[in-house]
Each structure stands twice: as C-alpha cells, then as structure tokens.
C-alpha cells in the first residue's frame, strides 16, 4: 500500500536518511523501531513531504506521492499524527476535529466526532475546551482523532506512546488495534520493543538513517533489537 524506495533526505548539508526502503501492506500495523536520532521522524516527514526528500521513490496505493504537496498526500488517504502532537491550542477539541475533516471516501464509512469520542472517551467531556488545556495523553488522543477525521486509509503515528502513563498506553494500544479492525492500516514509530509487541504485526529497525532489519514482530529477537537500539 505504502512503498518507499531508496529515500535520501538532508537537513541542510547533513544527510539523515540513506537509501531507506520499506513497505507497509493494507491492513497491517507496522512499527518503525529505532532510538533517538535514528531517523524515524524524518522518514515520516519525508513521506508527507513536510521535509522534502533529495531523491527516492514514494508511492501510496500504487501512485507516486513523491514531492506532492502535503495536503494532496493527505487527500490520497494517508493521515499523519506528528510526534509533538501539534494540537491547535487555541481551538476547542471540536474545532480541532473540524480542522482535520475531509470529505468521505468511497467504500468507507466516514468518521464522526461521536464515533471518535467512543474511541477516546476522555475527549468527550472536554469537547468544548481549548486544545491547549488538555493533558499530554489527551492531546495525543486528539491528534489521532483529528487525523482520523480525514478518513485515512493508512495512518502514520509518530511515537504515539511517548510520555504517556502506562494505563493510557494500554488504552491507546487497544484503540489502535480497533483501528485495524475497522480497516485502517497503521504505520507507527516506537523506541520500546515491548510496547511494539503489544500491537504490531511487523517491524522495521532503523539505525543511522537506514533500515537494518525487517521481520514479523513475533520473530524479532531481543538481540536484534539490542544490537541497534540499546543505549
């Protein structure tokens, strides 16, 4: 569904991604595992063309989205929830959801705020509160909910569990599995193998800007993980 081929990305003169290649199939939950600075966020931002890549190929549903304006990529059905959440702090929860709304997709039941509130019950009671007043966990849920309002076929989640309390992590993990059941593919990044095991089908290990290992999550050994991700 999503295929990235030989992607090279620079920040100024510093190369961050080196011939990065990966693919996510429809209906999968795939994790991109790596430690800080490995290039996870840059990979996602390059896919969304928020940080334009230098060279490579990116296709979504067999169509090239390489260097397409970000908004067109989103309209193709690829949603993105950034690591730093980027809630519109001066908009209410409802307005944040409205900002993410896109026309419904064919063969796909559109998300409504009410459905999303069922998925994220914490948000329901705060629907008229400003985004800036939410807690970290609530903001994370709002980011995901806001992206879902665009009715994506695949959603990219950049470190969705970062900084969340263990209780909330479990709750969010359940919610993400539910997304899969509803037909949304998920591509997320994570630093912690145990958390990834909780929900993912398959994992890529990224180290210094390129993919070093790929396997189903069940067969991914701790040694493989330790080799690239231990601090």
């Amino acid at each position: 569904m999503l295929a990235v081929n030989s992607l090279n990305t620079f920040y100024g003169k510093a190369q961050i991604l080196f011939n990065l290649t990966l693919a996510v199939q429809a209906g999968e939950i795939v994790a991109l595992i790596g430690r800080n600075g490995a290039g996870k966020t840059t990979t996602f931002k390059s896919i969304m063309n928020l940080v334009p890549a230098e060279s490579g190929k990116i296709s979504f549903k067999h169509q090239s989205i390489y260097h397409l304006p970000s908004y067109k990529i989103c309209k193709q059905g690829l949603g993105y929830a950034p690591e730093d959440r980027r809630i519109f702090t001066k908009l209410t929860v409802m307005e944040n959801l409205e900002a993410g709304k896109q026309p419904p997709r064919r063969d796909f039941k559109p998300w409504t705020p009410e459905q999303l509130f069922e998925l994220f019950p914490n948000l329901a009671e705060k629907r008229h509160q400003d985004g800036g007043t939410l807690s970290g966990g609530e903001q994370q849920m709002l980011t995901i909910a806001r992206t879902l309002m665009g009715n994506p076929e695949m959603i990219i989640l950049d470190e969705p569990f970062e900084g969340l309390a263990p209780m909330i992590v479990k709750q969010l993990a359940r919610t993400i599995r539910k997304l899969k059941d509803q037909g949304v593919s998920v591509f997320l990044s994570e630093q912690n193998l145990n958390v990834a095991r909780l929900i993912c089908d398959r994992a890529y290990i990224i180290h210094r800007g390129s993919i070093r290992h790929e396997s189903p999550i069940d067969t991914l050994s701790s040694d493989q993980y330790e080799k690239y991700c231990s601090v």
Binding site: Y71, K75, F88, T89, E95, N96, E98, A99
Partner: peptide, 24 residues
C-alpha cells in the same frame, strides 16, 4: 464557520494544517 476554524488553525501551525489535507 469551517473557513474560520481553518484560518485560526493556520495562524497557529500552517504545516500541520497542510498535513491534515488543507490547501493553504
């Protein structure tokens, strides 16, 4: 209005708005 919400969102974070499918 939706237009107003998008405008206010754009004053905060244009890039994010683009990633949400809005043609800035």
């Amino acid at each position: 209005t939706r237009w107003g919400i998008l405008v206010r969102a754009a004053t905060e974070d244009r890039e994010m708005l683009a990633a949400l499918g809005v043609n800035q």
